[in-house]
């Protein structure tokens, strides 16, 4: 076990890298969802939109954790939203798991798997990854902003990107739902 001991700065770097990687993956998933919506004209269902909210919440927690060094509050926020994502996705998967009139998985399947099922996998993966991060690195307490400026810069750029896609999602929701119920028939304000 002695050979596995890493110096604290390496542990901090690996910890921050794992957080950044997780954020990149979640924002890539959100970007893919937007591509499905705007390029392939697949209008998201209300539960799909709520899953996006949960993923954005995860991103928020991860960004908070990347910036802060005093606590693990950001990880807690990300865990809560990952759990919320899992609950919503599991409920939607169970809703359409038995084929019957008026109930079918919305949207096209990716690699033979439908979106809510992918969301379950993403929720479980996020919970697992965050738990593994805590188990492996044990929440190191060295100031990351001063120690790793390139990582902090990358996190800042990614944060701005996520804010932009969140704003685009907000605009799309306004067009789709207005201030009323959301439907998958079309964009309420454009018809």
């Amino acid at each position: 076990m002695r050979g596995l001991r890493l110096d604290p700065s390496t542990v901090v770097m690996l910890d921050r890298l794992s957080l950044l990687l997780l954020t990149v993956i979640v924002s890539a998933v959100l970007t893919a969802a937007m591509v499905m919506q705007f390029v392939f004209a697949e209008i998201p269902c209300p539960l799909c939109l709520l899953q996006r909210v949960a993923m954005f919440g995860c991103c928020f927690g991860l960004f908070h954790q990347l910036r802060t060094q005093e606590s693990e509050r950001g990880t807690g926020v990300a865990l809560l939203f990952a759990l919320l994502l899992l609950v919503i996705a599991a409920r939607q998967t169970l809703l359409d798991v038995v084929p019957r009139p008026g109930h079918a998985y919305i949207g096209s399947a990716v690699f033979g798997v439908h979106m809510p099922v992918w969301s379950v996998a993403i929720g479980v993966s996020l919970l697992l990854a965050l738990a593994l991060r805590l188990a492996l690195f044990g929440a190191p307490r060295i100031r990351p902003q001063t120690a790793l400026p390139p990582l902090a810069r990358a996190a800042r750029i990614l944060e701005v990107y996520v804010v932009v896609i969140c704003a685009i999602n907000f605009a799309a929701v306004v067009l789709q739902c207005g201030f009323d119920e959301c439907h998958t028939f079309g964009y309420r304000l454009l018809t």
């Binding site: 909210v53 954005f56 919440g57 908070h64 944060e159 804010v163 907000f170 306004v174 959301c182």
Partner: peptide, 15 residues
């Protein structure tokens, strides 16, 4: 839903 997303964007911007 619109309010939910508005609050989410506001959270990111405030952050």
């Amino acid at each position: 839903m619109t309010i939910t997303f508005a609050l989410l964007v506001a959270a990111f911007v405030l952050r």
